[in-house]
Design a protein around this nucleic acid. Sequence first.
DNA 1: CGGAAAATTGAGAACGATCAACCAAGGTGG
DNA 2: CCACCTTGGTTGATCGTTCTCAATTTTCCG
Lengths: 241, 241
Amino acid sequence: MKKTSPAVSCSNCSVRRLCLPVGLSDGDIERLEQVTRKKKVVRAGETLFRAGDPFDSLYAIRSGSFKSAVIGADGDTQVTHFALPGELLGLDAYSGGMHPGYAEALEESSVCVLPFTQLEGLAQQVPALQKQIYSIFSEELKQENEALLLLGKRSADSRLAALLVNISSRYSRRGYSASDFVLSMQRIDIANYLGLTAETVSRLLSRFQKQELIRVQGRSVTILDPIALSELAGTHCSYEN
Amino acid sequence: MKKTSPAVSCSNCSVRRLCLPVGLSDGDIERLEQVTRKKKVVRAGETLFRAGDPFDSLYAIRSGSFKSAVIGADGDTQVTHFALPGELLGLDAYSGGMHPGYAEALEESSVCVLPFTQLEGLAQQVPALQKQIYSIFSEELKQENEALLLLGKRSADSRLAALLVNISSRYSRRGYSASDFVLSMQRIDIANYLGLTAETVSRLLSRFQKQELIRVQGRSVTILDPIALSELAGTHCSYEN
DNA sequence: CGGAAAATTGAGAACGATCAACCAAGGTGG
DNA sequence: CCACCTTGGTTGATCGTTCTCAATTTTCCG
């Protein structure tokens, strides 16, 4: 007897190689699909969750993009992450039972809703899923550490270069062009993420263009000199310790 | 029949309320103790692991303190965390199978070595342990987000104030004085962690003292005006959960 | 179209870095 | 025991990157 698979499922999802199904057998993926049944579409500017919302689900991005941010005691916000398809949102809400920050769609986006109690239960039975969850947590921590290095040690131009290189490589992994892409976030979000101001970001983009490192047209970016850009970002070779 | 418990174990550990045993039944703690058998003593300045070391264990701090840092491609380092008893080191090494950064003891310290395969296996059988591991990962992510906010948005004096308040409340949670403590790290580590220079940290400490917010004598700090300091830090509430 | 939001560009100010001198504590060897 | 050196910390003077304030221009979208 042949199964009628749902219109959207992990098995035929375009980001299954970057998402929870990594390392899972076909059988396990089928069980995961029982958990990922519910989808949700979020339009540009809408939030998936806000700071203080109770935690019950994780969200896996199917398409689109998000910014996550935390809100300080005095009300100012720090963009902590730009999230692309295949990535999980809401991991920092497990401890404490509520979301410490919010996630806002930067464009029309679609996510899988993952009720955490169910996911937890399944992970208890499927070691490969367990491992993948650890792996995602760990990877996230590693990336945050990189972000700390960026904010703590690098100059403004180095930070912006690093972001461009980062986004480029992430698009590339997802099968899109590494040299031509559209920044789905606005300048002020980039600035906020990098600990700069919108003016500085704007000036730097103009300068990078003048230096023929990139070409910018509004939100469209073309990377002309990836090597030089990586060097600026400080992520190329390692000499001296 | 009465069990002879080992000299050092989770059950009689002074930080069991902050560490992995949280939420575990006595029976489960006994099973956890099978995993946490091995201890290690690290002297001041020695590393628990270095960047690139293969990942096989997590380390739970029993006593002392550590700094963790990541090393950028061009060799400069960013201190990402100051770790106190009850906290876990090495979580960011799971994905990738090697430590992306190093952990160095700031004073004579003692840790439990937790072989991760064993811990993983036990967590598979003990849901409460599983939850606690998730919780620790999640908490760590939340703290890193706070650190990003600090580096991205706050002024130098606000950053230093936040660190003092943070350390104060963490000592307090561990049963030590919230107002009198010794900074186990040197000025340059504080500066590195906060994205500043040692000179700026030194100047600010002097200024705080002149403003009668604190008293500093070398590495000994007394907090005189916790309210004003918290306001400076931009976080009017303590870190308790 | 027209109005609002976003992005760019310019000029001046400010915060923190850099460079440099100095001090205190601890260790080492003569 | 003291001269010497090293390391960590403090303080001062100056410089430069990035912010702030402000004026336009461009883009977005009803």
